[in-house]
Amino acid sequence: MRNLLRFILSNHFVLLFILFETIALILVFQKNNYQNAIAFNISRNISGYINTKTHSLREYLSLREANIALHEENRVLRNELFSSYKSQVPLAEDIEFEEAWERRYNYIPARVISTSVNKQNNFMSLDKGSVHGIEPDMAVVSGSGVVGVVTGVSDNFSTVLPLLNIDLRISSKLKDTGYFGSLYWDGRDPTKATLTDIPHHVTLNSGDSVVTSGLSAIFPEGIMVGTITDFEIAGGNFWSVNVSLATDFRKLNHVYVIQDLFRDELLELERAEGYD
């Protein structure tokens, strides 16, 4: 016992190093548990508060660009409005819009209060949380395209796993032909991502649009992801496609969190059928 104590005392520097390093590395590699850890939930509220303050300054400096982007988005949306269309079928006007359609997606506006693009595992925080109806696994989009997936939620803030994180893969498809594959970021350029699993026989053109496939229960179908810049044959019979992302993550301010009102029903059915 005395020898053990003497050993610990004389080697306390190395032992302490191993202890601290083990704690730190456990934190690094236990990504899912930390989201629920109370310590980080508290820190999310505190750092969320501070980030909101500093972000309001940065946001002020980019007001002009944000305005132009929102204006453009408004133009597109106004053109999509039901009242912008004239019916070509005589009796179609008699059918009430609400009767034929039921709302599936609800968009919750939020602001980005902290983000990074320069790491391998980037994260993003939003200024809306569970009191605003945000839950984990909801999709986040910007006016121009896909942003990421909500991972953690506190009362007033939420964290997002953005596309610029090597852990996130998004099921995407080619808008023209409908062939789908898996899109991920390779950790290098914050404006580019890679689409894989597209069979070799599919004809590709640079400039083709890539949109979400709607095959996961997270993203609705048809949300813009980016455009093809170039492509090459990867190992096997698949293309490796470089995609220029539609969302500019370096100046992202306003985003929408998408609430799928039918998500529970869908997941319940899939669970009952033994998916997962």
């Binding site: 302490l16 730190a24 590395l25 690094v28």
Partner: peptide
């Protein structure tokens, strides 16, 4: 020295959402 290193790294981690990375 080790304790301060751990605290310093962890406080950077809290804001950067990278638990343990800077601490290690």
């Amino acid at each position: 020295l080790l304790g301060l290193g751990f605290v310093l790294g962890l406080s950077i981690d809290l804001f950067a959402n990278t638990p343990g990375l800077h601490a290690s």
